[in-house]
Amino acid sequence: MGRAPYPAAVTTHAEQPFDWSGVQLHVVTGKGGTGKSTIAAALALSLASTGKDVLLCEVEGRQGIARMFDVDPLPYEERRIARGLPVGDVAPGAVHALHIDAESALLEYLAMYYKLGRAGKALDRFGVIDFATTIAPGVRDVLLTGKVYEAARRNARNKKARAYDAIVLDAPPTGRITQFLNVNGELAGLAKVGPIKTQADTVMTLFRSPKTLVHLVTVLEEMPVQETADGIKELRAAQLPVGAVIVNLVRARDLGQADLKAARTGTLDREKITADLQAAKVDVTHEMVDALVLEARDHAERRALEDAQRAIVSALDVPHYELPRLADGVDLGGLYELAAQLKDQGLA
């Protein structure tokens, strides 16, 4: 592209560098269309690039990870999907992926804790598994979060299982995140006692601990920013730890403040532009200059709106990070680029 991928001046948005190194579980949420799955994947990569073993989990049945990393659809089983290259003496990290579905989680849970061999199968035959995972309210979320919890708390009990340095959860969207994580709240009216309730309580202790952070992905537009602010309030009210706001799809900053102002007020120097274009050996026409000036004005207007939304994000009292909009869309190379940006900005 012939330019620095992103101006250094805007890479650090946190007032002081935050230390996220003690965090074991990164939950990534965001309004639909803001790119939360992309950010979750980029975050997992950036953590792995520091030599960590990272588990990236998805719970919405979309197989988004497989698509982003261009690998076969993922089963209910941990798969290594990306491994780093050794840099000097540092051992490379890796990203493993896990596609969590409630049905498999329930069967595994039954097998693990209740040794329900035959009964487990019978449950399936009677449609109980289907019932419990699609109809019974809240149970689905308990199962999904329960599996994340299990991966986070690997210990001597399950010797074969791999222990991870960090887990990144591509979670449901902002509008549903508090309900999703607040599993015992959801069950409160239903199961006051019993194993499901106990399980939910245990999961909650991890979610409310300093080892967990919930990051919110947004874009600099009114509705997503408003939803992010609401989401932060809800999470805090439920005593769930808010991590960072990650602003995605930020426009390139090819124009400085003075130029932006000139573009907005229609005072860009057309003669200078024409002369420059001729000097750069462009076959310049009036229409071309008109088009460039018009595009600049449109850009300047959007930048002004972005700035207004950025001010709101800054006032949220949460560290925030910014990632650029990649003009060619996000492929695996794009994910690596975004991961490098997150690392540079200190999130990993």
């Binding site: 012939g2 000139a262 420059d276 750069a280």
Partner: peptide, 19 residues
């Protein structure tokens, strides 16, 4: 790229990149 070689802060270069 040609413009930036002679004038690093070129406004026109910025417009071209935007485009």
């Amino acid at each position: 790229d040609r413009l930036v070689a002679t004038e690093p802060d070129s406004t026109t270069a910025g417009l071209l990149r935007l485009h």
